[in-house]
Amino acid sequence: MELDELERDALRELANVGLSRAATQLSELLNDHIEMTVPLVQVVPYDQVTQALQLDPHAMVAAVWQSFSGQSEGTSILMFPSEDSKRLVRALVGPSMLGAGEDDLRGIEHEAMMEIGNIIITSGMAVIADMLGQEVRMSLPGYMEGNLPDIMEQRNRDNAGREMQAIIMFTHLKAAQREIEGRMVMLMSVDSVQVLFDRLHKLLRSL
């Protein structure tokens, strides 16, 4: 689906507002200055998604997802390179992890990333839904670590036979003096993407 310059700008602005709000929430939780921006938004067909994400397909990725339903349906997946997410959690949780065993560490990372992802996805989706006048209901968050193709394949498993598209938001997270490049992907059917874009056009026409 082709977006013109203004539509792309609008989508990026919505994502930026959503993730800035997430940054505000995270800063409260983590007691730290946090910035989150979305420098780039892309829309690609599902079969191009792993390539468009520009992540090493062999590297481990930590992913948090929540599916959503309403006028548009799909799954929002937030991904960070595993290495970075681990370092981030270690920096944030810090002293309480000292002396924790490997198993405990993994548990802590898993829990912390799930909550952080939960906040980012919820805030991002809330702004998009609000601005476009959509009602959205989210599922409980899930977490998985794996390489990119595996993660995308797993998340797309229930969509067999449907033509899927992905709205990709490149995210830039600054926290605990670290900068982390992540991706948020909204995996949706072509019809759902169309509903979303119709709303976007309506918003832009009203301005």
Binding site: L29, L30, Q66, L92, V93, S96, I108, E111, A112, M114, E115, I116, N118, I119, I121, T122, M125, A126, A129, E135, V136, R137, M138, S139, L140, P141
Partner: peptide, 12 residues
């Protein structure tokens, strides 16, 4: 407000 379940971990 946004119908999104939230997890609040002991870790954080």
């Amino acid at each position: 407000k946004h119908k999104s379940p939230q997890l609040i971990s002991q870790t954080l």
